[in-house]
Design a protein around this nucleic acid. Structure first.
Lengths: 219, 219
DNA sequence: ATAAAATTTTAGACTAATCTAAATATTAAA
DNA sequence: TTTAATATTTAGATTAGTCTAAAATTTTAT
């Protein structure tokens, strides 16, 4: 009934809806690597299936949104399985999970979740919705309250002053990155991080107070 | 390049080739639940892709045969995973494995095999080919040499006398069934079995000597 | 407020995989 | 060996998902 292709469109629209204010045909086309013409055509079909609210306002219906969250749940559970159980590295698993997320069996999904002991986040630190589509609320703290040696995910910024964002850009810092705290200087509150297992970055307390993180342990 | 649909055709031809002397269009159509016209059309495409030898003689090329065995390997490994790791029952897993067998990542397949400790048979007792496409040779013994309490798979018959096969049919015995030995009578060599967790069957030594089984433990 | 630019939709075509109905070829039987 | 039955192929359609090119619409800027 719902093809893999449709599932991928719904997922793309869900993700775009999380960041962009209004989702556009061209944004979906860009993300799906398809022509705008194909997207326009597909949106008609999604509307006919009751998955989006309107042809002009690309917003998921409750049904569409639930479907998206189910797919995201499966994707993130499988990524967790690949890393924790099959010893994949966390940056190797995406394309395999893109295939596994379309396997249809709610019993399988629930058994997998149970086997993994109901994880709240995947290996990238992204939250895993439960079977009803509810995301766990990960406790968000400023980087200044992090603990040395622990691993976190960079989640949000407390201010969007242009020069501040520029500063982050210069340091190569981006949302979703895994940050491991190498050390914290008691004296001035400065922090030294390892970003995505690659680069070391030093940050002042002033900056650290404005970066929000959540726990992202790999176990 | 190779679609899921094509993989399913190749698998069907492989299975039919194992039993039938010559594979026919209508046999493939029957198995795939498609019209003979569709099969005829598809065979042309399989030939163009170098997966079957000839349009008139439906036999897999080396490439086609290797592909079939890879799919069977994945199917049986996933079934084993579902039963041993996720606690599915062995008769619940087929349709899920039908989906998982098409996931493409040889690294995934090998990691899964390693995690399962390189099983030789799946939960139905069917042999799992290795990554080069070689099937393990399961040691086949007559039922008369089975051990009470153990689980076996009914693999072959030592004679195909019509009245003997009729006798098996009357008792509801079929190739591939799981047989658990309930008891063996030392006195006359008769055997009492539990067939597929359902029916109890009594067999004389004369019959037991002509039924070949192999080990089919579930661990 | 209108022209230019950007975005979206429509029209028409293509491919893979399927179908039914008709034509052809093969096998079996009288 | 010729006919009857069975099996296979071809022809023509259909559906999902895609494309390019052109038309229509909306947005932005002067």
């Amino acid at each position: 009934m719902i093809s893999t292709t449709i599932e991928n469109y719904i997922k793309a629209i869900f993700y775009l809806g999380e960041t962009a204010t209004n989702v556009t045909v061209s944004a979906v086309a860009e993300r799906m690597q398809n022509s705008p013409a194909s997207v326009s055509d597909m949106l008609r079909r999604l509307y006919e299936k009751g998955l989006i609210e309107d042809k002009n306002n690309i917003t998921l219906t409750d049904q569409g949104s639930f479907l998206a969250k189910q797919i995201i749940r499966k994707h993130r559970l499988w990524e967790t399985f690949l890393v924790k159980t099959l010893d994949f590295k966390w940056d190797e698993v995406h394309s395999i999970a893109e295939q596994l997320e379309h396997v249809q069996s709610s019993l399988l999904t629930e058994r997998l979740a149970r086997f993994l002991e109901y994880p709240e986040t995947d290996p990238h630190g992204d939250p895993i919705p439960d079977k009803d589509g509810n995301f766990p609320d990960l406790s968000i703290i400023p980087l200044s309250e992090s603990e040395p040696g622990k691993s976190y995910i960079f989640r949000s910024v407390a201010t969007d002053a242009k020069d501040f964002l520029n500063h982050l850009d210069n340091k190569g810092l981006q949302l979703g990155q895994r940050w491991v705290i190498i050390e914290k200087e008691e004296f001035d509150g400065s922090v030294k991080l390892l970003v995505d297992d690659k680069n070391e970055v030093y940050l002042s307390e002033k900056v650290a107070k404005n970066l929000n993180i959540c726990s992202g342990e790999l176990d």
